[in-house]
Simulated scan of single mutants.
Amino acid sequence: MRLLILGGTEFVGRAVTEEALARDWDVTVFHRGRHGAPPGAAELLGDRTAEGGLAALARGEWDVVVDTWSAAPTAVRDTARLLAGRAGHYAYVSTASVYAYPPPERLSEASPVVDGSPDAEARDYARDKRGGELAALDAFGDRALLLRAGLILGPYENIGRLPWWLLRIARGGPVLAPGPRDLALQYIDARDLAAWTLSAAERGLGGPYNLVSPSGHATMGGLLEACRRATGSDAELRWTDPGRIIAAGVEPWTQLPVWMPPGEMHDAFHRGDVAKAVSAGLRCRPVEDTVTDTWNWLCDLGGVAPQRPDRPPVGLDAETEAKLLRGE
């Protein structure tokens, strides 16, 4: 199989590249040259936002294209149109954020989505991703595979969610643990996303798929306990009532990464219907493996996690955590 990965050097793109190389695929990485491609991949350089930036893609044929773009849909539109006659399948890594709010009782691929346009410049994340979906569909039709991923964790994460928890717990001492302890989580390891994507594209699957673990694959308690074991920390997890956390003005998801208190938003983030992807072969590794491998990767980096420049840092500051732990 010949794979063209648009990006391919960071987080999800890198996971796709490494999975394809492990399958002995012929892999070409198209990127801006800011980070090195994994060994074994051919490289083409270009900037999709610049005039003439797709020149390196003017020639070549591929069985599968994987695109992780998350800004202006016009970049997906122009690339997909350029490749439509020379590529078999186009897998676009979208997001569950394309679903309209408020969500129905349980999100499925048939749930309403936000408006978007393949001809739009960058506006906001959800509409940009929906525009990217429409661009892929316009150029590839039923050869377009839309991966509506939820929360993505694992090695190479450059958003900072799991790295923040690992580094905080590694410091030890009392740790604010947002409850309830058995709160169901729904996420996907980037490597499981990569494996499913390549297999689905190879089989010729098309259309939208909610790509995330079944709800309850892990719990908040299981995630944080796995962090404590992986780091070897003596941290004391102090489980705290969600109402008290919210009353203190702490923002779920950003100040306390991964966590959403029970309610409508939690159900939207962590109770989506993934039956379609599971029936198409999605398999998710245990949370302990994701946490341990991410910790080992962080240690290799000297305990400093990379940060995407277009995303704000996440995590709770020490002063606010201390006040909550003291009951203030």
Rank of each mutant, 00 (worst) to 15 (best):
residue 113 V to F: 00
residue 56 A to D: 09
residue 214 P to R: 15
residue 228 R to I: 10
residue 7 G to T: 10
residue 176 L to F: 13
residue 239 W to L: 02
residue 39 P to T: 11
residue 274 V to G: 04
residue 208 P to D: 09
residue 153 L to Y: 05
residue 85 G to Y: 14
residue 165 W to P: 02
residue 299 C to R: 15
residue 290 T to S: 14
residue 147 L to N: 00
residue 178 P to Q: 05
residue 220 M to T: 08
residue 231 T to N: 09
residue 176 L to G: 07
residue 227 C to L: 10
residue 83 L to S: 01
residue 325 L to R: 15
residue 198 L to F: 09
residue 315 G to K: 10
residue 137 L to W: 15
residue 81 R to T: 05
residue 210 N to Q: 11
residue 175 V to H: 11
residue 293 D to H: 12
residue 20 A to N: 08
residue 270 H to K: 07
residue 100 A to N: 02
residue 119 D to A: 04
residue 87 A to L: 03
residue 45 L to Q: 08
residue 49 T to G: 08
residue 323 K to W: 09
residue 6 L to Y: 07
residue 24 D to W: 06
residue 278 V to L: 11
residue 67 D to C: 13
residue 319 E to N: 09
residue 190 A to R: 02
residue 50 A to Y: 04
residue 310 D to M: 04
residue 73 P to A: 04
residue 299 C to E: 15
residue 47 D to H: 06
residue 78 D to C: 03
residue 73 P to Y: 04
residue 189 D to I: 05
residue 10 E to C: 01
residue 133 E to S: 03
residue 39 P to N: 03
residue 323 K to S: 11
residue 243 G to Y: 15
residue 246 I to S: 13
residue 243 G to H: 15
residue 65 V to W: 03
residue 142 D to Q: 13
residue 324 L to Y: 08
residue 66 V to F: 09
residue 74 T to M: 08
residue 92 Y to G: 00
residue 121 E to Y: 05
residue 83 L to E: 01
residue 20 A to I: 12
residue 295 W to T: 00
residue 281 G to F: 00
residue 207 G to W: 12
residue 249 G to M: 03
residue 123 R to H: 07
residue 156 Y to T: 06
residue 244 R to T: 09
residue 200 A to D: 04
residue 93 V to T: 15
residue 150 G to I: 06
residue 312 P to T: 12
residue 28 T to N: 02
residue 203 R to S: 12
residue 199 S to K: 12
residue 38 P to H: 14
residue 309 P to Y: 14
residue 7 G to L: 10
residue 68 T to E: 01
residue 191 R to D: 10
residue 273 D to W: 09
residue 205 L to D: 00
residue 271 R to C: 09
residue 188 I to S: 14
residue 218 A to W: 05
residue 69 W to C: 08
residue 181 R to H: 12
residue 168 R to C: 05
residue 156 Y to R: 14
residue 137 L to M: 13
residue 31 H to A: 11
residue 209 Y to L: 09
residue 205 L to S: 01
residue 24 D to M: 02
residue 261 P to R: 05
residue 179 G to C: 05
residue 102 P to T: 09
residue 266 H to M: 05
residue 94 S to Y: 02
residue 190 A to V: 15
residue 153 L to D: 00
residue 181 R to G: 05
residue 248 A to Q: 09
residue 55 A to D: 14
residue 314 V to K: 13
residue 22 A to K: 11
residue 57 L to W: 07
residue 179 G to K: 01
residue 327 G to Y: 07
residue 170 A to S: 14
residue 304 V to F: 00
residue 234 D to C: 03
residue 198 L to R: 13
residue 268 A to G: 08
residue 222 G to Q: 13
residue 40 G to L: 11
residue 316 L to C: 04
residue 21 L to N: 04
residue 92 Y to S: 00
residue 233 S to W: 04
residue 79 T to Y: 11
residue 95 T to P: 02
